[in-house]
Every structure is written in structure tokens, then in C-alpha cells.
Design a protein around this nucleic acid. Structure first.
Lengths: 236, 236
DNA sequence: CTGGATCCCTCACGATACTG
DNA sequence: CAGTATCGTGAGGGATCCAG
């Protein structure tokens, strides 16, 4: 039996052998937004180049991603998902939505990347809350800027290209999570300067309806961690 | 920033900090079947006890699982999922179904555990293919034995307890995957002795309709791995 | 400048032994 | 039964270097 396997004849074990190694799913996450160069992937998550190299090779060998040489104008090499790899999208989105419920305000040094913001919007999108008419906006969360178009309950969000005639520009920071979790009302956030809107200001209300993070009951989750940590400190 | 984190303010990164460490999702998998003792979890996946110990402590601190002292008759300690942890079920099932598509016949030393078999059935269940009437059977895959009841498109599968009046007993081995993937027809499998059915033999046809693994196109996936491996050997 | 490979150090993992 | 203790190995983290 090969090293670093689980020794179980099980679909989940096999999946984890494919994407369970450290950094693998975050690489997939970025590739879900679009093809990426080695340097793109290396940029924001502080992944060592040798680990990135190893993951790309493993996932290519396993048929999840494809290495493609790009001709002329933008010469270089890009990595992109195969069909099989791309089928991880709903799973990673669900996992992201699940994890987002445990997020609190960012800790020191945590960054928001454009790719993670795109995925966060896809993961928290509530189709049933989408307005029937076409809505488009630009979302700025710190240095990350993404474009978003919702039409007929379908969401299209990318991190590149101009967005002509956007209905609004929403500019915010990490407080974005509090908005999406309903911890602060849009009007309150506007009043407190946590968010600014240029254009159709009503769009902020639509936004928090369309992109939602369920709140995690305080009886469980991370708060327990804080308590356990405090108890440990107290007991130790 | 704590060690062993990703440094990204992202729901997926947070989720991976919770369940992305080695063995964590397989522990969750077993707990999805029911509360388990330390020794139960230690049994079949060859996880070192110190690692199991560490994962249980981490996941308890993060509010995914709960440690509960069981009184009298069956004294001891069991671990069980919290509501938040249990909400991973559809995600792990999807991930398992995705990974199952890449399975081939088991390699030397790969084992099938009862818990993984229960999860495999839940993961591959096709509600639309379930018959309207109540169907129950016992599935034996090597040493793993599970009980299965399907009623009104709902699946209930466990690894324990008697199943009175089962419609059939299906006895098979790793060839189960070939059946579910449609690589071998039920009649052929019966003729080849890959599977035996006691009771309603027609139930095997219902079974392969209700529990299905999509086949992975040969143009991608694990076959590429074999080719790449061969190429590497050849080039090296 | 892209696309990596190489080196070194540390810590997480893996195996086993042992204890309340 | 429910873990803790110990110890060797190798994957991950971080910096640097190199080829096209």
C-alpha cells in the first residue's frame, strides 16, 4: 500500500487522499474562480513553493487539474480544473458556508483574497432571495474587489474585468461578515461607517438578503473553544 | 496568529482548520453513524492513539463533537456529534460520492469498515430511484454487515441491531463497487458468483438502481495517474 | 519576470509501549 | 476501557537560488 494513504476502501478516504492534504482545497478554491498561474497561486496564501509544486503535481496526476501552456500574448503556464476537479465546486461551497458560520471578526494578520471573496459570495448565495430583475454591483472588501451580476436567480461573480453600468458599488471591510450574518442591520452599518454605498443605496438591503451566513448558536461552536481555553489557562 | 492556521479570513479556510487535519473527517464519518467510544474509533482505521486523542480534543474544543460519560449499564465515555458537527453530513456524503467515482478495485490491504459501508450507502442513495413500497435488506460486504430500510424515498441504514423480516440478504465483497458503478450487470454478477442473494432475488436489481456510483470518463482521473506514473518510470 | 528546485529546520504524524 | 508517554521519520514552513 502506498504511503500517506488511509488503507480504507471508501469513497471519502479516497477523496481525502486526493484533496485532503494541506493546502489542496485552497488551491482548488482559487482554481474554481479561473485558471491560475503558479505565481498567482503563490501570491496570497503563504504557501511554500515546494508544497504548492507538490500539490499541483499530485492533483494533476490524479486528474483533478490540468497544466496548460498558454501561447503567445500571455505566454506562460496555467493550471485549470478538469471536469472531475470542477465537480468539487458545490462541495467546497457548502464546506465554506459551514465554516463561515464559525467565523468571528478577523484576527490579526488574517487576509481576504479576491478569490476567497468570490467563493464566499458563491457559497452564501440564496437563490430564493434573488430579485427577479437584473442586479449588478461591485463589492470592495479591503483590497479585494469583485464584480457581481444576479439575473433570474443566477449568480455570476468574478474578480476581473470592468462592470459597465453597475447599479452600485459597495465598499466595506471585514464588517462584511457581520452584515451577512445579520449581526448588524444595513442601516446601522451605514450609520456607523462600516460600509459605504455609491449608487443605488437600497441595493445593500438586497445584498444582505441574497448573501447570508447562518448564525451559530452560542451554546456551541467557537465560543466553547474560548471558554475551554480560558478554563485551561485558569486551571493551568 | 495561531500556528497551523491558514491566515485567511475565509469560511473554507476556517472549515479546514476544523476538519482539514489528517484523520479528522474520517472520525466525523464514523460519528455520523452513531456515538462511538475511543476504542471503537481506534479499531479499524489504523489511526495512532495519540493522533486520535488530539483530534478528539481539537474537535471538542471547536464545538464539533461532545464527550459524554455514559452511566450504568454500558459505563464509559462516548463521543458524539454536536448539531454543528452533524451538519457536515451532506458535505461528507457528497465528498464521499465524488471520491467513490475514482475508486477501482481495492488494492492489497485496503479494508471495508461497517461505518464506511453505512456512509457509502447514504452517499450513493438515489431517492428518485427508490421504490414506493417499503424495502428492507441486509448487506454483507466481507466482514461488514449493515441493515437497510427504504420507505417513501427515505433511507435508514445502520450497522447494528436485528432486522426482522428483511426482504433479502445480499452477500458480496469488493465487487459491490462494480455493481454500483454499472460495470457489471446484476445477473452477470450472480452468475459469476460475485454476489449471492438470499430471499427476494429481484431486490438486487432494485439495489443497483437505488445506490449508484457515476462512472468517471477514462479520459481523466486515476487512469491518467497510471499513465503519468508509467511515463515517469519510463523517463526516469 | 515566471516557474519552479533546493536546503534546512521544526513539528506533526506514525508506531509502539505503557498506565490509571 | 481510555487514554498518556516516548521516540523516530518525514511532511510542512520559510528562505534562497537557478533556469528559461
Amino acid at each position: 500500500m502506498a504511503r500517506r494513504t488511509y488503507g480504507q476502501y471508501c469513497g471519502l478516504a479516497r477523496a481525502l487522499e486526493f484533496v485532503g492534504e494541506r493546502w489542496a482545497m485552497l488551491i482548488i478554491r482559487d482554481l474554481l474562480v479561473g485558471p491560475r498561474r503558479f505565481t498567482d497561486l503563490q501570491r496570497l496564501p503563504r504557501i511554500p513553493t515546494n508544497v504548492l509544486s507538490a500539490r499541483l503535481r499530485e492533483m494533476e496526476a490524479n486528474g483533478l487539474i490540468r497544466r496548460r501552456v498558454v501561447p503567445r500574448p500571455a505566454s506562460g503556464v496555467v493550471y485549470e480544473l478538469t471536469d472531475y476537479g470542477a465537480q468539487l465546486e458545490p462541495i467546497l461551497l457548502s464546506l465554506g458556508a459551514w465554516g463561515a458560520r464559525a467565523l468571528r471578526d478577523p484576527t490579526e494578520g488574517e487576509v481576504i483574497t479576491p478569490d476567497s471573496l468570490v467563493i464566499a459570495l458563491r457559497a452564501t448565495f440564496q437563490p430564493h432571495a434573488a430579485p427577479p430583475r437584473l442586479v449588478s454591483f461591485e463589492l470592495r472588501c479591503g483590497p479585494a474587489v469583485v464584480h457581481c451580476v444576479v439575473d433570474h436567480g443566477e449568480l455570476a461573480v468574478t474578480d476581473v474585468g470592468p462592470l459597465p453600468g453597475a447599479d452600485a458599488v459597495i465598499e466595506t471591510g471585514p464588517a462584511l461578515r457581520r452584515l451577512m450574518a445579520g449581526e448588524v442591520a444595513p442601516e446601522q452599518a451605514l450609520a456607523d461607517g462600516l460600509v459605504r454605498v455609491c449608487g443605488d443605496a437600497e441595493l445593500l438591503d438586497r445584498f444582505v438578503e441574497m448573501f447570508h451566513i447562518d448564525s451559530l448558536p452560542v451554546s456551541q461552536g467557537v465560543l466553547e473553544q474560548a471558554r475551554a481555553g480560558a478554563a485551561t489557562v485558569h486551571a493551568g
